[in-house]
Computed example of a mutant assay.
Amino acid sequence: MTWTVYLSGEIHSDWRDEIARGSMTAGLAVIFTRPVTHHEASDDVGVALLGSEPDKFWHDHKGAQINAIRTRSLIEKADIVVVRFGEKYRQWNAAFDAGFAAALGKPLIVMHQDEHAHALKEVDAAALAVTSSPEQVVAILRYVIDGDLPGYTDKAASR
Results as ranks from 00 to 15, higher is better:
residue 22 G to V: 05
residue 43 D to Q: 13
residue 22 G to L: 02
residue 36 V to N: 15
residue 6 Y to E: 04
residue 40 E to V: 07
residue 130 V to L: 02
residue 25 T to I: 12
residue 67 N to T: 10
residue 143 Y to T: 03
residue 107 P to Y: 07
residue 62 K to D: 00
residue 52 S to Q: 03
residue 145 I to P: 15
residue 95 A to L: 05
residue 20 A to I: 14
residue 61 H to G: 02
residue 118 H to S: 12
residue 137 V to M: 02
residue 158 S to R: 14
residue 56 K to Y: 02
residue 20 A to D: 11
residue 125 A to L: 11
residue 63 G to K: 09
residue 49 L to V: 05
residue 141 L to F: 05
residue 46 G to W: 09
residue 141 L to K: 03
residue 117 A to C: 11
residue 158 S to N: 09
residue 7 L to T: 01
residue 89 Y to V: 13
residue 30 V to H: 02
residue 65 Q to V: 14
residue 3 W to N: 09
residue 74 L to M: 08
residue 126 A to L: 10
residue 155 K to E: 06
residue 34 R to S: 15
residue 13 S to I: 07
residue 61 H to V: 10
residue 133 S to K: 10
residue 4 T to V: 11
residue 118 H to T: 09
residue 58 W to I: 07
residue 58 W to V: 07
residue 121 K to W: 05
residue 138 V to K: 00
residue 134 P to I: 10
residue 38 H to C: 14
residue 144 V to H: 13
residue 155 K to G: 00
residue 11 I to L: 12
residue 54 P to Q: 14
residue 53 E to H: 06
residue 69 I to W: 11
residue 77 K to W: 08
residue 157 A to M: 07
residue 38 H to V: 11
residue 67 N to H: 12
residue 123 V to L: 07
residue 17 D to V: 06
residue 91 Q to N: 07
residue 50 L to C: 07
residue 37 T to L: 10
residue 30 V to Y: 01
residue 73 S to Y: 04
residue 149 L to R: 04
residue 11 I to A: 14
residue 128 L to V: 12
residue 66 I to T: 10
residue 25 T to L: 12
residue 71 T to Y: 04
residue 91 Q to A: 06
residue 138 V to W: 01
residue 100 F to C: 05
residue 149 L to P: 03
residue 35 P to A: 11
residue 56 K to A: 09
residue 64 A to T: 04
residue 96 F to C: 14
residue 40 E to P: 00
residue 98 A to L: 05
residue 7 L to V: 01
residue 39 H to F: 10
residue 1 M to H: 05
residue 141 L to A: 04
residue 13 S to K: 15
residue 12 H to R: 14
residue 79 D to N: 14
residue 14 D to K: 13
residue 130 V to D: 06
residue 35 P to S: 12
residue 76 E to T: 14
residue 85 F to L: 01
residue 113 Q to E: 10
residue 37 T to S: 10
residue 60 D to I: 01
residue 94 A to T: 01
residue 153 T to G: 10
residue 77 K to V: 02
residue 35 P to I: 02
residue 96 F to E: 06
